[in-house]
Simulated scan of single mutants.
Amino acid sequence: MAPSRLAGRSLLEFLITLLIGLAPVACGLLVLALQVERKQEETAKVSAVEAVYAIDRVIDTLHGASGSVLGLAGRTCEEVLPALRQEAFKQPNVRSLVLVRENRGYCSSLLGNVDRQIDPGEYLNQRLRLDLRNVVTPDVPVLHYRIQEYPFGVIALNDARSLQAELLGFKNSIVLALQFGSDYLWATGSGIESQIPNHAEDSQRLVSEKYGYTVHAGYPHGHTWRMIRQASASTAPSLLLVGIITAAVAYWGLFRRRRTPAPPTV
């Protein structure tokens, strides 16, 4: 056989063997990438459900505290202030309680006599409002929870850092954000939608059935690729070994056996 034809045949055999050896490696990496993507999506869904459960529990305490003092609304602030403060002190998630009469807050467990206009339209489902710039602590957002039996009502105020503490408990680099109307709160800050930390990958959205706020969950840009690289680094040696063995078996079965001369006949 001519040297050029022999070289061409050897090159063809090498390329075929290489492709056969790379097939299990490529398939393994593809399956790995799909598994990482599926796991992240499932984690985001579960995290959103767990976040709703955790935040609902915090708001449940506000609801309970508000309901327990609703009967005090309508009476003078001097008369009910001790009981109002005692109830606010009993609940660690309650920063203060405000009694409302005809949509005007008139008695606060924190400040005593007040006179503040209450606009129900500012509240999500007329129940929740995230105050990003309150007067008492302008750097700390406050969540307002409102119950109403017109003309009387109660507003329970919560230091939003307790909500942020719940969000900080989630790991796996997931970004969680709470949406109350047009305002957002996340583990390390608060603001409008454009300020939320990036969570575009495997993004999930879940609305609380009890209170109507929304939880957004997702991973920052590039997180999936980093996880795939980490997983690939640990599995690549095994995949390469499988590829080498597959290539060797294929080469022997397809080419080497053909070149082995038959034993001489007697």
Results as ranks from 00 to 15, higher is better:
52 V>I: 10
45 K>N: 08
180 F>H: 00
256 R>D: 12
184 Y>V: 02
75 R>G: 13
169 G>S: 00
90 K>Y: 01
107 C>G: 08
22 L>M: 07
242 V>K: 08
66 S>R: 09
223 H>G: 00
199 H>Y: 07
80 V>E: 01
244 I>E: 06
86 Q>C: 04
42 E>Y: 15
250 A>I: 02
244 I>K: 10
109 S>M: 03
33 A>I: 00
132 L>V: 05
17 T>C: 12
58 V>P: 08
109 S>E: 06
201 E>K: 06
228 I>P: 07
135 V>F: 10
175 V>P: 00
143 L>Y: 04
106 Y>H: 08
126 Q>P: 07
237 P>Y: 01
209 E>K: 15
217 A>K: 05
102 E>Q: 14
38 R>A: 12
175 V>M: 04
42 E>N: 15
88 A>V: 05
250 A>E: 02
139 D>F: 11
201 E>N: 10
149 E>C: 07
235 T>M: 11
229 R>N: 13
88 A>Q: 00
208 S>C: 06
201 E>V: 08
257 R>N: 07
56 D>P: 13
106 Y>V: 06
231 A>I: 10
182 S>H: 09
36 V>E: 07
36 V>N: 10
216 H>A: 14
11 L>V: 14
25 V>W: 06
195 Q>E: 14
198 N>F: 01
173 S>T: 01
127 R>L: 02
241 L>I: 12
193 E>P: 05
130 L>C: 09
190 S>H: 04
125 N>K: 15
266 V>N: 15
139 D>P: 05
218 G>K: 05
1 M>K: 12
266 V>W: 12
97 L>T: 02
